[in-house]
Design a protein around this nucleic acid. Structure first.
Length: 562
RNA sequence: UGGGGCAUGGUGCAAUGGCAGCACACCAGACUUUGGAUCUGUGGAUCUUGGUUCGAAUCCAGGUGCCCCAGCCA
């Protein structure tokens, strides 16, 4: 069934924005999507994307793309380019000013720091990182004030300017907000505003030896851009009072922050840090490995952008911790592809069938439907001949009950072909594998129709041995074996739950000749098997297909029950 | 034994004092030249205790459980 995205459904964020408009707190709506360019976007970011861009669009506002690039140690241009590509793939358009950067505001933010120093609300601290941690106290005990907390404004100004001038070593000093070391909210215990970092920045080069912390840049960046609603992860709930304190002290426009629960998905890990570990440790082939939950991985896998968008719309938005079943995403991927994917015949695990009463050298062009869900997709010809390949699992020497496929003495229909009957087979005495199947065909059943009205339960796919193209097919399964790979026992890591069978590469698969000039990214349904798309690695001389998602398999279910 | 947040079928989201509904999953069946798709149907939920009310998932009070916070990361 096809369901339109339920973009009209309400949620607590939409209601809050409506209220802000009604009460006059804001007269317009503006949001932002603020990624740090330190990794590739994943399905969790798609949720944030849909909320940030979706809310702006719903209220006729703009959503800016703004990189939170305040830590040059972890960031890289590779990521800023990739992030833009992924956002566009999902179909979102950021504000007309183009991509923005927190680093655009470094000078402004520096001036803000100076302002706070002058107000006596910030000070340079010479304590080491370890000492600062000690002085911070614990969750249940208040912290202690730094001995440097009460330096004069002049000294603070001088020291901070010299930090900016690059006079001090990394780690030797920081600038801190002077708030309340006894606050029950640890974020208010004189948080660090600036640290010394001599690493060059991907945009500002070596201009700055100091960089603002995210907490001292994010809120003001929102404010400077006129962002009305800053929609973010629950993790920042505790930071909201700090952002509000900065805006208040600085006398800036007050953005409203609203937090929502991030996405979690079964059999998946959605932490940039862990995903980076998979890439750096070569557990996967890269950020765009089709097993990865990254947007580029899903794109390469063949997931339609629309399926990803519908998925996010379907799961909704709330503040409750959640673990979404990956089956929902897979359902939506099938639902989209079912309508659009061209049907073709492909044999993954070929076994030769010889039709003994079919004339040698004869070839017939059989009429095949391209997409039963879309009559406008038209028909195509598929060559039929005396020797064909079928999938090994479509033949059983001893068929179990309800097995409707080929078996000794039994009839089966070749899709768009003929009805054939198995009269013999050859078995390798060593391996026990079936190496050849002999059948006869009924010449009266061309196209698969039985003029006598006889019932043939099974229909299987096939390709003409002579005309078939070789292909490599990559079959994917969930990357992890545990529904929640984040939950790990003592002494173990998420890596212990990696699924060793998440990728199976099949060589020597046989596909119909119409696939000869397939372009990377083209999607198909291999009938009875699943949806596939030509991989980036695919060429005319060496076809490579990714299994996007398998078809629902009723027979597998019947077998499982036994 | 600090602070912040969250509790509705298996999963996720609705119901905003008035018959607890939708999607996925699950189960049964129909149809079928894809054991796909489609169609029909079944089962199953308000954390707990008390209170307010004609009436509570919703309001109030207490309890319980789960998540987040002690980076010079974001």
């Amino acid at each position: 069934m096809t369901v339109e995205p339920t973009t009209e459904s309400t949620n607590f964020i939409r209601e809050a924005i409506e209220e802000d408009l009604q009460t006059g707190r804001f007269t317009y709506v503006q949001t932002r999507f603020p990624p740090e360019p330190n990794g590739y976007l994943h399905i969790g970011h798609a949720k944030a994307l849909c909320i940030d861009f979706g809310m702006a669009e719903a209220f006729g506002g703009v959503c800016n793309l703004r990189y939170d690039d305040t830590n040059p140690v972890k960031e890289d241009v590779e990521f800023v380019d990739a992030i833009q590509e992924d956002i566009q793939w999902l179909g979102f358009k950021w504000g007309e000013q183009g991509p923005l950067y927190a680093s655009d505001y470094f000078e402004q933010v520096y001036q803000m720091a100076l302002q706070l120093i002058v107000k006596g609300k910030a000070y340079v601290d010479d304590l080491s990182a370890d000492q600062i941690r000690e002085y911070r106290g614990t969750l249940t005990e208040p912290g202690r004030e730094s001995p440097f907390r009460n330096r004069s404004i002049e000294e603070n100004l001088d020291l901070f300017r010299r930090m900016r001038a690059g006079e001090f070593e990394e780690g030797s000093r920081v600038l801190r907000a002077k708030i309340d070391m006894a606050s029950s909210n640890i974020n208010m215990r004189d948080p660090t505003m600036y640290r010394i970092l001599k690493t060059p920045h991907h945009r500002t080069g070596s201009e700055w030896p100091i960089y603002p912390m995210y907490d001292f840049a994010h809120g003001q960046s929102d404010s400077v851009e006129g962002v009305t609603h800053s929609l973010c992860d629950l993790a920042y709930e505790d930071h909201r009072p700090l952002y509000e304190w900065f805006l208040e002290e600085l006398g800036l426009f007050k953005t409203r922050q609203i937090e929502f629960a991030r996405l979690n998905m079964t059999y998946t890990i959605l932490s940039k840090r862990f995903l980076k570990q998979l890439v750096d440790g070569a557990y996967v082939s890269g950020w765009d490995d089709p097993r990865m939950p990254t947007l580029c991985g899903m794109r390469r896998r063949g997931y339609p952008a629309k399926a990803v968008r519908r998925f996010i719309d379907t799961i909704g938005v709330a503040k409750k911790e959640n673990l979404i079943e990956i089956e929902l995403l897979e359902h939506l991927v099938r639902d989209e592809l079912n309508l659009s994917a061209k049907r073709v015949l492909g044999v993954l695990d070929p076994v030769k069938v010889i039709i003994t009463n079919y004339p040698e050298g004869q070839v017939e062009e059989m009429e095949a439907i391209n997409n039963p869900e879309d009559p406008s997709a038209g028909n195509r010809k598929v060559p039929f001949s005396r020797e064909i390949f079928i999938d090994a699992e479509d033949f059983r020497e001893e068929p179990p009950p309800k097995y409707f496929r080929l078996a000794p003495g039994r009839e089966v229909r070749l899709r768009y072909g003929y009805i054939i009957r198995c009269i013999d087979f050859v078995k390798d005495p060593v391996s026990g594998n079936i190496t050849e199947i002999h059948c006869t065909y009924d010449p009266e059943t061309k196209g698969g129709y039985a003029p006598d009205g006889r019932k043939v339960q099974g229909t299987i796919h096939w390709v003409s041995a002579h005309h078939a193209l070789d292909a490599e097919i990559r079959i994917y399964d969930h990357l992890f074996t545990e529904p929640n790979p984040n939950k790990v026992e003592e002494g173990k890591s998420f890596l212990d739950h990696l699924n060793p069978e998440a990728l199976k590469v099949l060589h020597g698969c046989k596909v119909e000749p119409s696939l000869a000039f397939t372009q990377p990214g083209e999607t198909f349904q291999f009938e009875r098997k699943g949806f596939f798309c030509a991989d980036l690695d695919s060429t005319a001389g060496h076809l490579v297909f990714n299994q996007t998602v398998s078809l629902r398999d009723g027979w597998a279910k019947i077998e499982q029950k036994k």
